[in-house]
Amino acid sequence: MNQPLRTIAVGFDGSPSAELAVRWSFALARQLDARVVLVHAVGLLQRLEGADAPERFLESVHRLADEVGFDRRRLGWHVTDGDACSVLLRATDEPIGADLLVVGSRGQGVHAGLMLGSTSLQLAERATIPLVIVPAGRDAD
């Protein structure tokens, strides 16, 4: 694979695990001069939290970018309805056109140790582009 890596899609649900994945992606994107698109899946229950719930996530994303000095102009934010796995799989298509997927090892509220519902493991089975799973406890060094 010799094509330059231009767009990194990162699953973001506001969890500490997702924040680690975002930090790791920012670090890689700076090295490669790539764009980072944070992808947020709006599930069934999030509809109960009100229409502005994704915007609250965007604020924390901007805070993360500022903390590590990542240029916001190279940062995209994509909110769409669906489960996290399906939404991230579709990130390879336009308008995102990702050529790398990055996720944390464990999403918001999901049972620790559960193989069944692990977005990262499901993506590992189904992704058609390279996937990075950032383990908990690792920083973006």
């Binding site: 649900d13 899946a41 599930g43 069934l44 229950l45 999030q46 489960d83 996290a84 796995c85 999403g107 918001q108 509220g109 999901v110 049972h111 559960l114 069944l116 519902g117 977005t119």
Partner: peptide, 9 residues
């Protein structure tokens, strides 16, 4: 014992 399968389920 079960638990959360995903964000909704």
């Amino acid at each position: 014992g079960g638990g959360n399968i995903d964000e909704d389920t």
